[in-house]
């Protein structure tokens, strides 16, 4: 079945089963491998992407749910070679070890910052509860979200790429 979705500001027309997971479409059809497979059961958060402004587990989200709303993946955060404040904060805080959970953590953090521009550590921990970091970098991840919030007073707003970068 033909499905049209918009990812990181680019429109894609695909011939896929609408029940197919968004994760599989991103990774296998669109080559966007920054979004990771970790469990396939919505438990680890490695596949977190934004659907509109909301963080979702792409492994549990049918691609059809993406129709009509903008999908943002980790590849869609950078703007003209400039990192999103939260990406930069992950580097500055050393908030990664193996880095496999990092894209999902960042996407979940970006979603939080959009609704809560200066979250408390408890709020951050609650928002990231669905994301697993096996290396135990949790405290630094919380600090990175706080640092990004401080770097962008009034909220780390990020456009979804609708205006720029469309092909």
């Amino acid at each position: 079945m033909r499905i049209e979705i918009e990812v990181n500001g680019h429109r894609h027309a695909l011939d896929v089963d609408p029940a197919q997971s968004l994760l599989s479409v991103l990774r296998d059809d669109l080559g966007l491998t920054g979004t990771k497979y970790g469990c396939g059961e919505g438990q680890c958060g490695a596949c977190t992407v934004l659907l509109g402004q909301t963080a979702v587990h792409a492994c549990m989200t049918p691609v059809s749910a993406g129709v009509g709303s903008a999908v943002t993946t980790i590849e869609g955060l950078e703007r003209n070679g400039r990192l999103h404040p939260l990406q930069q904060a992950f580097i500055d805080e050393g908030a990664l070890q193996c880095g496999y959970c990092t894209p999902g953590m960042i996407m979940a953090g970006v979603a939080l910052l959009r609704t809560s521009p200066s979250p408390s550590p408890n709020e951050i921990a609650r928002a990231l509860q669905g994301n697993i970091c096996r290396c135990g970098t949790h405290s630094r991840i919380v600090s990175a979200v706080q640092r990004a919030a401080a770097a962008a007073p009034g909220g780390a707003q990020v456009d979804t790429g609708r205006e720029e970068g469309r092909t």
Partner: peptide
């Protein structure tokens, strides 16, 4: 700072 961190945070 971690070598390669930029590639991790961008998903590259």
């Amino acid at each position: 700072s971690r070598v390669g961190a930029r590639d991790i945070v961008t998903g590259r």
